[in-house]
Every structure is written in structure tokens, then in C-alpha cells.
Amino acid sequence: MGMAVYAGSDRSSSTEVGRVTRHSFSFGPHYDPANLGFGPLVCHNDDLLAAGGGYPDHPHSELEIVTWVLEGALVHTDSTGHRHVVEAGRAQVLSAGSGIRHSEVADPRSGRCRFVQAWLAPSAPGREPAYVLGEAPQPATGLVEVVGGGGLPIGTTGARLLVARLAPGDVVALPEDPRQHVFAATGAVQLGDRELREGDAVRLEGEPGRVVTASEETDLLVWSFA
């Protein structure tokens, strides 16, 4: 129980032609038995793709895959017939279910693309694959629920993704749920006596309702678990 801070500089990373990925949890060859996940969250990757770069067609199963685009645009194509361009400020949820294939490539017309992608364990296995794309971004104040709850549907019970674009001095209260993963995607915020800068994360257990104050313009991503 309590608060654990994870510095962005401590993340492992994978580099391939056209992409760099930074991993918040144990991932692929970057095996860490002490950092396999947080509740149902088993992957939290921060990807930077060169224009036209990305991930060619590959399979997934029994995962809820949530993508939040921070910069540029991501072209998603999957084996159920979906093909969408996901612009900055939009979320997509791919429920892999019993099995699906997809590709993710930075739209060459929009230059480089940065996105954060989370993988969560589903609450029920063997479901039909599904895909849903969020609406175009709307101006908002404070944390906005984009996945779970009143946001896009996800097959992990009690999981929610909330996001905020904060200006310097903005103050937001974190959700009341008992378990939260707080990620400073850009900028800097103050959480208690700790400062989080770009790439830093905090995992909270049993400390609902903490307050975050932005030190500069910040993109804040919060996974909250009931």
C-alpha cells in the first residue's frame, strides 16, 4: 500500500528501424520478475514512430489494448476490417479476444507519431474481437474519462483511463479508486512532495483522492482501477 515512484529514465527501451519504445513494465527481452504489471495492467509502452514507421501486421489474443495518441497520427488496420487514422487527442480500444491481427503505422502525411499504449488482462476470456475509436477531442478542464466508465467500452471490469491537458498551475484531484497508475506523458507535475517529469510514473494503492498540480503544460494519463 502507498505510493511508488518510477523514473522515466529507468525504463527499458527497444529500438527498431523507424521506432523507439520505452517500457514501464517487464516486456519481451526486457524481463523483470519484480515488475510484471500493476493490477490488470500488464504493459504500458511509450512509442515514438518516424513518419511511415511502426508495427507491421502481427497477432494478439486475450488482451484489451488501449492507445492514446499524443502527437501526429496513427494508422490502425486490423483483420476484422477496420482501418482508421487516429489523430492526437483520440483513444482507441482493441479487444483482441480469441485472436486478431493488426498493424500500427505513423501516418506519413502527419510526420512522426508518439502514442502511449496499455495492455490489460480481460475479465472474461474467449470473447469476439472488437474495435472502437473515440470521438474527436473536445476542449475540457481537468481529467476526462476516455476509456471505461462513461468512455469507450473495455473488457476489463473496473478499469478506466482518464487524461488531462494541464496548464501551469492547474490542480486536479485524482480519482477515488483504490489503485491508480499516474503517468506524466509530457511536462511536469507535483504530487505530494514528489515532482514527476516527462516519462515518470507513480503507482498508488490505498491512497485515493490525491491532488496533482501542474508545474508546466502537461499531458497527464491516469489508469484507475476500482
Score class of each variant (00 low, 15 high):
143 L>G: 13
7 A>D: 08
214 A>R: 05
192 G>H: 06
202 V>D: 05
3 M>S: 02
26 S>R: 04
28 G>D: 14
112 R>S: 12
203 R>L: 12
3 M>D: 01
94 L>A: 07
122 P>C: 10
216 E>W: 02
35 N>V: 08
125 P>I: 13
164 A>D: 03
106 A>Q: 05
38 F>K: 10
198 E>M: 10
174 L>W: 04
140 A>C: 05
155 G>Y: 04
17 V>N: 09
179 R>F: 05
172 V>M: 04
99 G>H: 13
10 D>Q: 08
80 T>H: 11
124 A>T: 15
15 T>N: 08
149 G>D: 14
200 D>V: 05
19 R>L: 15
64 E>F: 05
70 L>P: 02
141 T>H: 02
200 D>Q: 01
1 M>T: 09
87 E>Y: 11
202 V>N: 02
191 L>S: 06
78 D>P: 11
225 F>C: 01
2 G>M: 02
196 L>D: 07
189 V>Q: 03
53 G>L: 14
113 C>K: 01
8 G>K: 05
198 E>Q: 15
130 A>M: 03
171 V>E: 07
133 L>A: 15
143 L>E: 10
186 T>I: 01
74 L>E: 02
108 P>D: 01
219 D>R: 06
103 S>T: 12
85 V>S: 10
157 T>P: 00
186 T>W: 00
137 P>N: 10
17 V>P: 05
160 R>L: 03
216 E>S: 10
155 G>T: 08
63 L>R: 15
39 G>T: 13
9 S>E: 14
69 V>W: 11
54 G>E: 13
97 G>F: 12
39 G>W: 11
171 V>D: 00
149 G>N: 10
134 G>E: 02
91 A>C: 15
58 H>L: 06
200 D>F: 07
27 F>Y: 13
215 S>M: 03
181 H>N: 00
91 A>P: 07
219 D>P: 00
133 L>M: 10
194 R>M: 06
165 R>N: 09
194 R>S: 11
120 L>R: 05
225 F>G: 01
73 A>I: 04
213 T>R: 13
40 P>D: 12
168 P>R: 13
127 R>T: 15
205 E>T: 14
150 G>I: 10
144 V>Y: 11
158 G>K: 02
188 A>T: 08
164 A>F: 09
